[in-house]
Structures are given as structure tokens and as C-alpha cells.
Write a protein that binds this DNA or RNA. Structure first.
Length: 128
DNA sequence: ATGTTGACGGTTG
DNA sequence: TCAACCGCCAACA
């Protein structure tokens, strides 16, 4: 009884980095792309986040704090209508991240510094 | 192999 | 300031 096919390597790298974001902080899709060595692949990071909803029943991926990834200006850009965006705002609020009425996070205040290059390297080697 | 799809981000008018 | 456009590139049908 096989388990479901694992995500592609690119997605696994995205999830590994997102899991490093501390509660109470956020980062952007583009910064995650930079950290996994794919600068410019911000859209694909968003794609990886979207794919998580197809694995809602897989415990392996339930600990990925997707809500801590926002647009580069701090704006919540999740699709699925206001319901989805308000849900992300609610999750962030529970972690102590203030979300403005315009569904934007103050990046100057909550931005995660991110991984240093050697930290990203040691985190990602051994995947796939 | 090829075309379509996207939870982005930078540029343009 | 803001909407529309477009380049980006991995995953998937």
C-alpha cells in the first residue's frame, strides 16, 4: 500500500525552508525562492504553497507554516477569495503578527531575517 | 514533447 | 497611487 507520491524536489526544498520560519515572523515568496537557490521562482513557491491543500490528510506536510509566507510588500495574496485571505490573517494574528485592515503585514517589523547561505545549504543537502 | 496553470514581482502608463 | 501587462519557471495533463 503505497504512500502517495512525494512532492517534487523543488517543493520539498520550499517546504524545508518554510518550516524554518519562526512563529511570529513572516517572509515573502521571492525570498524563499532566493534561499533555495532559485531566484526569480517566486511564483513556483506560491505554487508549492497551493499544493499543500492537496495534502491536508498527509501528516508529513501538516507542519508547514504556509501562513508565514506573504507577498514581498507584506500583503496577503492567497487566492480563494476573502475567506482564504481572512483565514491566513487569522492564523498570523494568533501567532502575534499584526495584520492591518488592508490585509498587509508590516515587513519592517515582522520580516524574518532568513537563512544564511551556508545554513540553507546544509538544510537542503540530503533532500530528494 | 508541448501547452497550460499559478497563493509572484517588477515595470509601465 | 493603481491597474494592467509581462517575464519568470516548475509541475502537470
Amino acid at each position: 500500500m503505497g504512500k502517495r507520491k512525494p512532492p517534487a524536489l523543488f517543493y520539498q526544498k520550499v517546504y524545508a525552508v518554510v518550516r524554518q520560519i519562526p512563529a511570529g515572523r513572516v517572509t515573502s515568496y521571492g525570498r524563499v525562492a532566493d534561499m533555495i537557490g532559485h531566484p526569480g521562482a517566486a511564483r513556483q513557491v506560491g505554487y508549492a504553497m497551493s499544493a499543500l491543500k492537496n495534502r491536508a490528510d498527509d501528516p508529513e506536510y501538516q507542519d508547514v507554516p504556509w501562513q508565514r509566507v506573504v507577498g514581498h510588500n507584506g500583503n496577503i495574496v492567497i487566492k480563494g477569495g476573502e475567506h482564504g485571505r481572512l483565514y491566513q490573517a487569522e492564523l498570523l494574528c494568533e501567532e502575534g503578527v499584526h495584520v492591518g485592515i488592508d490585509l498587509t503585514v508590516d515587513m519592517g517589523k515582522y520580516l524574518w531575517e532568513g537563512l544564511l547561505p551556508h545554513e540553507a545549504h546544509s538544510l537542503l543537502e540530503g533532500l530528494g
